[in-house]
């Protein structure tokens, strides 16, 4: 997509000829950031390096009049928020998905003298403390430093993907589910990370556990709690899960619903693919060692013992030091109904 030819923007993803997700980028400015984030999830292995994105401001690509304030427009704007900055170019003063005040560049693409398309940042930052930092006046406009001139989409070979994600598609892009859909409130910063960040932290956590504890009697001793707490620390610079055994860690997640939300197994993989830190654990009812893992982004796989698709884990339990194997190899099928899954909100 090139911002200089102002083509309408719609992204769909198909699998085996069946549409499994899609979004029309146009619409309310307040939705723009989350839409772009969703587009990035739809694109999956396609790496986005363009710094600028342009979207026509209508809800339907078949809508004839897309102008700001034109007949049939159904999106919200206030004329006082629009300041003309040049020929066919305006600044729109609005808010981003997190409620921060934001200026957007708006342009006239059909030559009728009225604004109809808006530039939005394709890499929306997740600000943990909105309002305390000045918005980047350049807000990601391409300066050519990346060699792409800031105006071209660049794709990479899917096999050359660095984030390792496979088809991370939200089947419920509009939300509506209390656990499986996008649950982040617009004005509340979430602890979402990128797929790549989670994958990297999970692998680094495994490596650190290997380095710290080594092998005992020719095998890797169980240190599942160390792996989970280390991944959490690497991602959030937070030692909240340190110095707990597995049972205590699950009890902690259960007793801190303000930070940890229990989710279903099916939603666990979806949420991990959206960039949430998702964990799973089994409390040993005998008081002996329980078991905890991190759910890592990826394509769920079929398990015969669990009789269905299962998510992927990072596991540093007994003789386990890996990222990306099915949870059916981390937990016995006979315990599957006793496993709890949590999302770090």
């Amino acid at each position: 997509m090139n911002p200089y030819n102002y083509r309408p923007v719609r992204v769909d993803r198909y699998k085996n000829g069946v549409q499994i997700g899609g979004v029309f980028l146009a619409g309310d400015v307040k939705d723009a950031v989350s839409k772009v984030a969703y587009v990035q999830e739809l694109l999956g292995d396609v790496q986005i390096t363009q710094h600028q994105l342009v979207a026509p401001m209508s809800f339907d690509e078949n809508q004839e009049d897309n102008d700001f304030g034109g007949g049939g427009d159904s999106w919200n704007w206030d004329e006082s928020d629009l300041t003309q900055t040049g020929d066919g170019e305006w600044t729109y003063h609005g808010h981003d998905a997190y409620g921060n005040e934001q200026d957007y560049t708006v342009i006239d693409t059909d030559g009728d003298g009225k604004p109809d398309s808006i530039f939005i940042d394709p890499n929306p930052p997740v600000d943990p403390d909105p309002g305390t930092e000045e918005p980047d006046p350049d807000w990601g406009w391409g300066d050519g430093e990346d060699g792409n001139g800031g105006d071209e989409w660049e794709t990479t070979d899917p096999d050359d993907s660095s984030d390792g994600s496979k088809d991370p598609v939200d089947p419920n892009p509009g939300g509506g589910s209390s656990s499986g859909g996008e649950t982040t409130e617009p004005n509340k910063p979430s602890n979402k990370k990128t797929v790549n960040e989670i994958q990297t932290a999970a692998q680094a956590a495994v490596n650190n556990v290997v380095d710290k504890y080594g092998m005992e009697n020719g095998t890797f001793a169980p240190h599942c709690n160390a792996g989970v707490s280390e991944a959490f620390r690497l991602l959030y610079n937070d030692n909240a899960l340190s110095n707990m055994n597995a049972n205590s860690m699950i009890t902690y997640w259960t007793s801190h619903p303000e930070a940890w939300e229990e989710v279903s197994m099916q939603d666990a993989q979806i949420l991990a693919n959206q960039g949430y830190f998702v964990v799973a654990g089994w409390i040993n009812p005998t008081g002996g060692s329980g078991h905890v893992v991190v759910i890592v982004p990826g394509e769920p796989v079929n398990s015969t013992s669990w009789d269905g698709k299962v998510p992927l884990t990072m596991d540093t339990g007994s003789n386990k030091r890996y990222v990306g194997k099915p949870i059916s190899q981390s937990f016995s099928s006979k315990k599957k109904d006793n496993i709890k899954y949590f999302k770090y909100k």
């Binding site: 040993n284 339990g317 003789n319 190899q329 981390s330 016995s332």
Partner: peptide
């Protein structure tokens, strides 16, 4: 098999 951090 080693699974769930339990003794095999």
């Amino acid at each position: 098999t080693n699974i769930m951090s339990q003794p095999p």
